[in-house]
């Protein structure tokens, strides 16, 4: 469940904030969100990773289909990638790592400052 929560929040952040802010600002926000929500390492990593990957792939797919432009293929040739589709996959993979590690760092950071109950009877 926590995975889906982080996934949805990440998608919302990328879709609504990324158009106005550069990717590193999105990374900071994902870090903060994970630190606040403390979803757990695994949910943070996979949720943040897939959230950002899916929204980036989704947007590049939407732009490509909607415009009918062959720019992705042309760009692929210049960069030396096999095709525009590969470029889209690479975009997704990069999004995955950026999102996943940002969230994971956030969650790990929260673990650091989380006060550990020393005496369960005093609370």
């Amino acid at each position: 469940m926590k995975f889906f929560g982080i996934l949805v929040v990440t998608i919302l952040v990328v879709v609504f904030v990324n158009p106005f802010l550069p990717y590193w600002a999105v990374m900071v926000i994902l870090f903060v969100i994970a630190a606040l929500l403390k979803p757990g390492n695994s949910a943070a990593f996979w949720g943040g990773g897939f959230g950002m990957a899916l929204s980036w792939i989704g947007l590049s797919l939407y732009l490509t289909i909607n415009s009918g432009s062959d720019l992705p293929d042309r760009m692929a040739q210049i960069i030396g990638a096999p095709s525009g589709t590969v470029l889209m996959a690479v975009t997704g993979v990069i999004g995955f790592f950026l999102g996943g590690f940002s969230s994971l760092s956030g969650n790990l950071f929260r673990n650091l400052i989380k006060r550990r109950p020393t005496n369960i009877y005093r609370g």
């Binding site: 158009p19 947007l59 432009s69 760009m75």
Partner: peptide, 16 residues
């Protein structure tokens, strides 16, 4: 990353 970020990178140039 700035080149591939679909919100700011080259993907935006698919629009006419």
């Amino acid at each position: 990353v700035p080149l591939l970020d679909p919100n700011h990178g080259f993907w935006q140039q698919t629009k006419s």
